[in-house]
Design a protein around this nucleic acid. Structure first.
Length: 414
DNA sequence: TCTGGGGTCCTGGTACTG
DNA sequence: TCTGCAGTACCAGGACCC
């Protein structure tokens, strides 16, 4: 789901575009979370609907009727409701989205094994192995659109091109409910008239920096010396943008992309300054993160704590452990030590987060168990908690300090 | 206007090591 | 033993993406 939308360049011919060699498809669901939520609220079709939570949350998605009022994803809910007070607000149902996403990905894999999911609602497909069996890339793209509409009741847009980057741009321009082919011969014409912000990797800051250089279109970037771009944006970004501006993108569709970090953070309903409350939140986040690391069959070596203050300034502190771990207790101990080392005296905190980095497969981790290693016991305890959570639901077993006082004081049942 | 939560990648600084 | 250097790892923060 792209946040940046641009108008497609005008077509110069009515002839069907030549999709020879354009085997990369980028498929992007249209307003996915909103469309999926409307499956359970069909009476709201054609009306402004916003998907999001309460309090200090932001808009997850909105129907095109709500977008007409200026509502966009990632916008604070308070502002969205002000812009479109008549909109119906629906709370996100992530289980529902995951189920639909799994079905959509299965449709993709019925076409080709070369499917690279980017998120719940979009993926790259390399259909080269399927062309002989199913037809041209554009034909396959249309079949995917029809199948998803028939089976899931939601629409999607498809970009067809020779590279991932151009296919992704094309799907954004095809929205909503469209398909756009960018023939190989037309790539530079297509690219060079688009604004710099259309480039993958150009956000608000980079766009500002490019505008300061007088660069407004991708064509301007292409015709700027790469050294100028590197000085303004850094070596990697400058080179990367210059390469993309000439339509060069060697990245292949990668079906298996392993996670490099796993973490959780939590914005408090109100800013807090109570160290005990923050420690409890760190424990909860460490617990949740560790469970996800274990579920992924991985262990991590670097623990990072994120703290966002009331004025929205954000700091991170990290520590690399001697050995990789997936033990909740170890992760919490490191996270708490990092937080305490900040020496914050009643600072007003808006958000805290815990993240594990340097992930490796647990089978590949070189942890040497010792007979006197107390963590062996904690690891077994964690495994037992995971099994209980799988059977009785997440949160069925929690650290004692996370059980509310009221509940701890209540008499035992029976 | 008032900014979520989950990630990846890059950069620049610092510390360590040979 | 000290100094300079290069390579590497780690750390912190920023920008970006969905």
């Amino acid at each position: 789901m792209s946040r940046r939308q641009f108008r497609p360049p005008p077509r110069t011919s009515d002839a069907p575009p030549d999709d020879t060699g354009c085997t990369i498809l980028h498929v992007d669901m249209d307003a996915f979370y909103a469309s999926a939520s409307l499956l359970d609220h069909p009476h709201l079709r054609g009306t402004p609907v916003i998907i999001g939570g309460g309090g200090r949350s932001v808009v997850l998605s909105a129907t095109y009727e709500a977008r007409a009022f200026g509502v966009t994803s990632a916008m604070p809910m308070t502002r969205a409701k002000r812009l479109c007070p008549q909109a119906t607000v629906i709370r996100p149902d992530h289980d529902r989205y995951a189920a639909i996403s799994a079905a959509v990905m299965a449709t993709f894999r019925s076409v080709t094994d070369l499917v690279e999911p980017l998120s719940l609602d979009e993926a790259f497909l390399d259909v080269a192995p399927a062309v002989r069996r199913l037809g041209s890339p554009a034909t396959i793209g249309q079949w995917v659109r029809d199948t998803i509409a028939d089976e899931q009741g939601i629409t999607c847009s498809v970009g067809v091109a020779a590279t991932k980057f151009v296919a992704k741009l094309a799907s954004g321009l095809a929205k909503p409910d469209g398909l756009l082919v960018v023939p190989r011969a037309d790539v530079l014409t297509f690219l060079h008239q688009l604004p710099v912000g259309a480039l993958w990797g150009v956000g608000d800051r980079t766009e500002e920096a490019l505008h300061r250089l007088g660069l407004m279109t991708i064509g301007d970037i292409a015709h700027t010396p790469v050294d100028t771009l590197r000085r303004a944006l850094g070596d990697a970004s400058g080179t990367h943008l210059h390469t993309l501006a000439w339509g060069r993108d060697e990245r292949r569709v990668q079906p298996a992309v392993t996670e490099k970090s796993i973490g959780s953070d939590e914005t408090f309903a109100h800013d807090i300054d109570d160290p005990d409350a923050i420690h409890r939140e760190l424990l909860r986040l460490a617990d949740r993160t560790a469970a996800r690391v274990r579920a992924a069959g991985m262990v991590g070596r670097t623990v990072t704590v994120k703290v966002r203050f009331a004025d929205f300034t954000t700091i991170t502190r990290s520590r690399t452990l001697r050995e990789a771990t997936d033990v909740s207790r170890e992760i919490y101990a490191a996270a708490r030590a990092l937080y305490d080392s900040l020496g914050l005296q009643r600072a007003r905190i808006r958000l805290v987060g815990v993240r594990m980095e340097g992930l490796v497969d647990v089978e590949r981790a070189s942890r040497q168990p010792r007979l006197d290693d107390p963590e062996q016991g904690w690891r077994e305890a964690d495994r037992a908690v995971d099994r209980a959570s799988a059977r009785f639901g997440a949160g069925a077993v929690r650290p004692g300090s996370l059980v509310s006082d009221r509940r701890r004081q209540s008499p035992p049942p029976g």
